Amino acid sequence: MPGRPETPIHPGVDSPVRELAEQLRELRRASGLSYRALQQRSGYRAGTLSRAASGRQLPTMPVVAAFAEAAGLSAPERARLEELWQQSVSRSGDHLHVHAMPAVLV
């Protein structure tokens, strides 16, 4: 797969956010697509998708859904990923801000 290697997820990242980030990274690896290819398929910028899988913050559900669809997940697989996102929000509590990730391609 083209592109540079991803930066490891920092060990201090909250486990719910880490788990989701690891799932998104695995999804991208399994799809064989670069972030630029996912950008073309999802409508979100490559940087937005990369940040979603970075573990630095919990991405919004629309970003996660677009990431999953662009990577070719089936509807049941996308539903499981959405459930993981919901669990991440619930388990993270109020101390975690769910940031909107703008930068949708026009």
Rank of each mutant, 00 (worst) to 15 (best):
S54H: 05
S74Y: 05
G47F: 03
H95N: 13
S90L: 15
S54K: 09
L58K: 03
R36D: 14
H10D: 14
G72P: 09
P16R: 12
P2L: 13
V17P: 01
D14F: 05
A100P: 01
E26D: 14
A37E: 15
A21T: 08
R4H: 13
E22W: 08
G12Y: 06
H97S: 06
G72I: 11
L38M: 05
A65I: 05
G72Y: 09
S92P: 12
V13S: 12
P2Q: 08
Q87S: 09
G12K: 13
S34H: 10
Y44C: 01
R78N: 07
A65W: 01
P11Y: 13
L20V: 00
M101D: 05
R29T: 07
A68W: 05
S54L: 11
G47E: 15
P5M: 05
L73W: 03
M1C: 06
L73Q: 13
L38W: 06
E77A: 15
L81T: 12
Q57R: 10
L84Y: 06
D94W: 08
V104F: 01
R18K: 15
G32P: 11
P16L: 02
V63T: 01
D14W: 05
R45W: 01
S50L: 15
L24C: 04
L96S: 12
R80K: 15
L73H: 03
P76Y: 10
P2R: 13
A70D: 02
G12Q: 10
V64Q: 03
A46N: 03
V104M: 11
R18Y: 14
L49K: 04
S34P: 09
S92N: 15
Q39V: 02
T60Y: 00
D14Y: 08
Q86R: 15
S15P: 13
R28M: 09
S90R: 15
L20Y: 04
Q39W: 01
H95T: 11
I9D: 07
A66R: 01
V63N: 01
Y44P: 02
R18H: 14
R78I: 14
R45L: 01
R41W: 00
A65F: 00
E22H: 08
M101T: 02
L24F: 06
Y35G: 02
L84A: 10
A37F: 01
T7W: 07
L58E: 02
A71P: 13
G3V: 13
P8W: 12
A79H: 08
A70K: 03
V13Y: 04
V106I: 00
S42H: 02
R91I: 03
Y35T: 00
L27F: 02
R91P: 04
L33E: 13
L73M: 11
M1P: 09
S54C: 03
E69N: 15
I9L: 08
P11C: 03
E19F: 07
S88C: 11
R56A: 07
M61L: 15
E77H: 14
S92I: 07
H10Q: 14
L33G: 06
R45Y: 02
A71R: 10
L38Y: 04
P2I: 09
G12T: 09
R51T: 09
L49E: 05
Q57L: 01
G55A: 06
H95C: 06
V98P: 00
D94L: 10
L49R: 11
G55C: 10
L105W: 05
R56H: 09
A52Y: 00
Q57A: 14
P5G: 09
E77D: 15
Y44Q: 02
G3D: 12
S90C: 10
V89L: 08
L38K: 04
L81V: 13
V64T: 07
P8F: 06
